[in-house]
């Protein structure tokens, strides 16, 4: 069990007139090797939830355990090796391209590994590998990050985290603001990493991404975890309550089921599998 939240609450500006309880009594397990999506309205606590994972925020109550590391207020329990934890678990924040600062792309990406004690050479090698992984070839290495397009800058920022070779990758709306092609390519990259064994935790508003990529969905509302489910089960219920947009694919599935076509939902993941399921169902009818 790599990640376990136990009775986690978090209050911003605790003990001040501005105190605001952003998480309440969260209990949660995230399995090794899963592709977990976290969904819910703006302001429901998604980003606060993931920031507990590397000790950037520490639970006001309760604790988060990531492998052998503990994030907690409790001095006896909490890990002293926060740096090791941050190497194990990398977080890509919203609009990470605004965090670039170095004069060349490769220096920016190598900054992390160097900070974790790698030699200049090894850090650059890691950086180059990570940049190629996100689809930026050698011609980008010496360029200034500030001359790149928004989508390219986003890739550089993601490479900066990948250069640390984390085994758990946490992504806060990684496709927001990208055009559809850029978003597709970004998701392909994460899927590739997941296939190679990286645990992926993804905060998103895009339900098509949830349906296509994730195996587990955590639904949050008002600082609490409301459901831990699968995409399939999630879209089979009324979601207006959580302000989630059901993907068109599922709206169509619903339209068909409501009219009596019996579809095997477990077989439906995309348009092609739905077409196959429809053909099958129609065949049975005859």
């Amino acid at each position: 069990m790599p990640i376990k939240y136990t009775d986690v609450s978090f209050t911003y500006n605790d003990k001040t007139p501005f105190s605001y309880e952003a998480l309440r009594g969260v209990n949660l397990d995230i399995l090794d090797g899963s592709f977990t999506a976290i969904v819910g309205k703006t302001g429901c606590g998604k980003s606060t939830l993931i920031q507990q994972l590397n000790g950037l925020l520490v639970p006001s109550e309760g604790e988060v355990v990531i492998n052998q590391y503990v994030v907690s207020k409790n001095r006896k329990r909490r890990t002293k090796k926060i740096k090791e934890l941050r190497k194990l678990l990398g977080i890509v924040f919203q609009f990470p391209e605004y965090q670039l600062f170095e004069e060349t792309v490769e220096k920016d990406v190598a900054f992390g590994p160097k900070n974790f004690g790698l030699s200049n050479e090894d850090a650059l090698k890691n950086a180059h590998d990570a940049l190629r992984l996100v689809g930026l070839d050698d011609s980008f290495f010496k360029r200034s990050p500030f001359d790149l397009s928004g989508g390219e800058r986003r890739r550089v920022a993601v490479a900066g985290i990948l250069a640390l070779k984390p085994s758990i990758l946490v992504l806060d709306e990684p496709t927001a603001g990208l055009d559809p092609r850029g978003a597709r390519e970004m998701m392909k990259l994460f899927k590739g990493l997941h296939n190679n064994g990286t645990t992926i935790i993804l905060v998103t508003h895009d339900m098509n991404i949830v349906l296509e990529y994730s195996d587990t969905v955590i639904v949050m509302e008002d600082g609490e975890v409301r459901q831990i489910t699968t995409p399939l089960r999630l879209f089979n219920q009324e979601n207006d309550f959580y302000s989630l947009e059901t993907p068109l694919l599922y709206k169509f599935v619903k339209l068909l089921s409501d009219q009596g076509l019996e579809l095997n939902l477990n077989e439906i993941k995309d348009i092609d599998s739905l077409a196959t399921a429809i053909t099958k169902a129609k065949g049975h009818k005859k």
């Binding site: 709206k251 169509f252 339209l255 068909l256 077409a275 196959t276 053909t279 129609k282």
Partner: peptide, 28 residues
């Protein structure tokens, strides 16, 4: 459009249907 195309590959021709409701009616 993508749905119609995938259905066509399975031998279900629904070219003349304009929206999802019509398509669902036809398929059911």
């Amino acid at each position: 459009q993508k749905m119609k195309k995938a259905l066509k590959l399975q031998g279900i021709d629904v070219d003349n249907l304009a929206n999802l409701e019509e398509l669902a009616d036809f398929l059911c």
